[in-house]
């Protein structure tokens, strides 16, 4: 890590010259910037790089999570993971979930953030209520939404549609509806959280900018297009990065709501990884799965970031 700290060439001129040239100031800032990033580098090495390397090593062994020694098996784990027939449907649902939640939450959170940024009676209360769904532990949501989606006539949604004379719907028992239900709960839980994120980014405009724009006779749309949107695009980059990674890694919400069912309809990739690693004691195989998964998620994210950068340069 010492090498990260200081390119040694830049030090002597720094001490000699009383006035720094622009380049030298830049260089000095370079050193300082590494000092500022040093803690995060340590965090990365200790909590991510080393464990990840170990994980990668496990993926080449038959480690079962219990024994303290394991045998090297080469790439065998990487070939066996593709033989699991349920993996394909897990991949399918994981993608549907990720795209569905990312699109829906983005579409709902931005208008919500814009509204919550305006003054109206009860704003603080509304803001809190929207935020709280993300605070509750997922385990309890499984129970509560279970009652809401109950296929019985006494289920919350079914009672409501019953007032309009409709037959009860088996929300979690029909594959397509079950997928939809899981996405609905995820959107319910995530929208407020992301709205708060957008809200924070909206604060980067000093309010006098708006005032000035108002005096200059800018229309509402112009204000949105030239003041608000350039701030929303970077927020969107961050928010969608979180939604995509979170969506691809999702496990607990579908699991508590449907147990991955009916059949394999709402099974996710992470559920496969966890079941392999913990319940079946096949840490080697689970590690191989997560390495593949990690690479795949990485590719998707790089694509998303490239797209986001183009958007940012277009709108700022």
């Amino acid at each position: 890590m010492g090498t990260v700290l200081a390119p040694p060439r830049s030090k002597p001129p720094l001490q000699r010259a009383p006035r720094l040239t622009r380049l030298q100031r830049l260089r000095r800032r370079g050193i300082e910037s590494y000092l500022f990033t040093l803690p995060v580098v340590i965090v990365f090495v200790v909590l991510f790089a080393i464990p990840l390397a170990q994980s990668f090593y496990y993926s080449l062994t038959d480690f079962n999570g219990y024994s303290t020694d394991a045998d090297f098996v080469g790439l065998a784990n990487y070939t066996t993971i593709w033989q699991d027939s349920s993996m394909l449907s897990a991949l399918g649902f994981t993608l549907v979930f990720t795209v569905g939640t990312t699109a829906a939450i983005t579409a709902l959170a931005i208008p919500l953030a814009l509204v919550l940024n305006r003054k109206f009676f009860g704003r603080n209360l509304v803001r809190s209520v929207f935020f709280f769904p993300s605070v509750v532990s997922v385990a309890i949501l499984g129970l509560v939404w279970g009652f809401i989606f109950a296929p019985l006539g006494t289920g919350v949604i079914n009672s409501i549609i019953g007032w309009f004379g409709a037959e009860p719907i088996a929300w979690l028992a029909e594959p397509t509806l079950a997928k939809l239900s899981v996405i609905i709960v995820a959107v319910w839980g995530g929208t407020g959280w992301h709205a708060v994120l957008y809200l924070a980014y909206l604060q980067a405009i000093p309010s006098e900018f708006y005032e000035a724009a108002g005096i200059d006779g800018a229309t509402r749309w112009q204000q949105f297009r030239y003041l608000t949107l350039p701030l929303l695009i970077p927020a969107m980059t961050v928010s969608q990065l979180l939604l995509l990674t979170g969506g691809l890694k999702v496990y607990d919400l579908p699991y508590t709501l449907t147990g991955g069912g009916p059949g394999f309809a709402t099974r996710t990739l992470t559920q496969s990884i966890i079941e392999n690693g913990i319940a079946q004691g096949e840490v080697g195989k689970a590690s191989a799965l997560s390495v593949v998964f990690f690479v795949a998620v990485g590719l998707i994210i790089v694509a998303q970031l490239a797209l986001a950068r183009r958007l940012e340069s277009r709108f700022s």
Partner: peptide, 10 residues
């Protein structure tokens, strides 16, 4: 088929 959407708690 709605039995597949039931839980013991329901």
């Amino acid at each position: 088929s709605s039995a597949a959407g039931l839980t013991g708690d329901l």
